[in-house]
Amino acid sequence: MTQAVSPELRDWLVSQLAAGHSVPALRASMRAAGWHDAATDIALAQLEAGFPESRAASALPPRTSMPGPDLEGSPLYIDVGDRRVQVLQTMKHPRVIVFGNLLSAEECEALIAAARVRLARSLTVETKTGGEVLNVDRTSEGMFFERGENETVRQLEERLALLLRWPLEFGEGLQILRYAPGAQYRPHYDYFDPGEPGTPTILKRGGQRVATLVMYLQEPEKGGATTFPDVGLEVAPVRGTGVFFSYDHPDPATRTLHGGAPVVAGEKWVATKWLREREFR
């Protein structure tokens, strides 16, 4: 089966070459990620020839299209058809928006009930291999819904597509997480590290992640805030609200380092939606 040399792979190769990695090292990384020798040869030949469509790694321009709500005129509410979502807080760098009235209490309960019987120790994407692994920094339990798996999920996904002006098909499946007392997720980035050998494999499914929306389904009694250490921001996990943030390139300069602070008392349940740059399969 022929493996296509995508623009994302070319950009990754350019960025790695600019960072000082050799062509033999890039070849080894691609082989480790499962790329066939023929596709590897084509990609590296284009790279060495200065492929004209590749973006300059030393100065990646901002993406021309990014997910996010229409905030023209600084609206207090955004009409998404089935409800009016509140705009509670905004920040420009990093681009962070806190939404209120994003989910009803009934929707929160329905998602928790459907997820509860399928919970397992949360995994994280392993960018060294392209697979999933247990991570000591993440001590929650979780599960994934398929897109449109049930009526509640379908309605929520359609709402988010309208709110964030991003195609529904570009979203990963909705993830539900439960944080018991003491559980946390230490600060991390949601984009896939371009320097890791497994990243080209991950990008085949839909390109880079470009935005995250964390929605709070059940608030704990104490603790559990979503934190942004680079800017000193903490978002309280209030039921029915959500925090959205985007990152136009996979780099710490986006200031999107974030984490889930430990739950001190009670349980925190969240739903997370990650958005990709193209259709996620």
Rank of each mutant, 00 (worst) to 15 (best):
R186T: 13
H188Y: 05
Y189P: 00
Y191D: 08
F192H: 14
G195W: 06
G198I: 12
T199F: 03
T201A: 15
T201L: 15
I202L: 11
L203F: 10
L203T: 01
L203Q: 03
K204S: 13
K204G: 03
K204H: 09
K204F: 02
R209F: 06
R209T: 06
R209I: 04
V210I: 14
A211P: 00
T212E: 02
T212D: 03
V214R: 01
L217T: 09
L217A: 05
Q218L: 13
E219Q: 15
E221S: 13
K222Y: 11
A225Y: 08
A225V: 04
A225H: 14
T226R: 01
F228T: 03
P229E: 09
V231S: 09
V231K: 10
L233T: 05
V235C: 08
A236D: 12
P237C: 01
V238I: 15
V238L: 15
R239Q: 14
R239T: 13
G240F: 01
G240T: 06
T241A: 09
T241Q: 14
T241S: 15
G242T: 06
G242H: 05
G242Q: 05
G242I: 01
G242A: 12
V243G: 07
F244A: 07
F244Q: 06
F245K: 08
F245Q: 02
Y247F: 15
D248H: 14
D251G: 02
P252F: 08
A253I: 14
T254V: 13
T254G: 12
T254K: 09
R255H: 12
R255N: 11
T256D: 03
T256L: 05
H258C: 03
H258D: 01
G259W: 05
G259S: 10
V263S: 09
V263D: 06
V263E: 10
V264H: 11
V264P: 00
A265G: 06
G266H: 11
E267N: 14
A271P: 01
A271M: 10
T272L: 12
T272W: 08
W274N: 09
W274Q: 07
W274A: 02
L275R: 01
L275A: 04
R276Y: 06
E277G: 12
E277F: 02
E277T: 10
E277D: 14
F280E: 15
F280P: 00
